[in-house]
Amino acid sequence: MLRLNNIEVMYNNVILVLKGVSINIEEGKITTILGANGAGKTTTLKAISGVLRSERGEVTHGTIELAGERIDRMMGHDIVRKGVVQVFEGRRVFANLTCAENLIAGAHVEPSSAAMRQRMDMVFEYFPRIAERRHGRAGYLSGGEQQMLAIGRSLMSNPKVILLDEPSLGLAPLIIEEIFTIISRLNKEQGVTIGLVEQNANLALRISDFAYVMENGSIMMEGPAAQLLDNADIKEFYLGISEHGERKNYRDVKSYRRRKRWLS
């Protein structure tokens, strides 16, 4: 569905952030990108959704294809029309607009007002809390509600692919659980393809089909989510479980070396 072929991204014409990243987001599946802070996950999503330019960033090498069509030279607002929408890290709801107005803005590419209202009803079904607060200003919602609104807003454009950037950021475990359940439901019930960036590897891998691990602007590891969930390194770095408890043995030391390389 969505394929990144060996892309490089540069900011301000000097800072090379992605150094040849290839990712395949399969249709109807949930694909996760894991990675430490600063690995380039957000940059990857922004490269796909075409909003890099507003940050003086650019795809300098490689291609991004949506169902075979190149989209890496397109403007962000045209890419939404093609069916790819990004939910930003940190929610980024339109704070001064009401919840309903946020959804209206999200439906900008939908010319028919009737279709827009239909989608709004669908969003309200998935997120009853947003329905209750539809006339309240989005800036006053709780973090969890803002995340729901941000996801709901992305649904308004009738997307084929939703790119979610750290939807669990700064939220309480219960809310995270709720949001991940909804993401999973959207994928199954609406058939939306999902690209997910997460630090919360455990949860992300459990709802995903395929996963990539990114480090320092390159892909270090990839595989079916279940397989990565079993991988010792992933366990230790993201899930906080070490295989032999607290005991220090040769394995731990080896992993530690590997981790150091990871984070350098």
Binding site: S49, E55, R81, F88, L97, E101, I104, V109, S113, S157
Partner: peptide
């Protein structure tokens, strides 16, 4: 109007509006 709402969205955040398909 929907265009008016979009315009206010643009003022709120250029980048996010662009990601909503609004031709900023």
């Amino acid at each position: 109007t929907r265009k008016g709402v979009a315009m206010r969205a643009v003022a709120d955040s250029h980048q996010v509006s662009m990601a909503m398909g609004i031709n900023v």
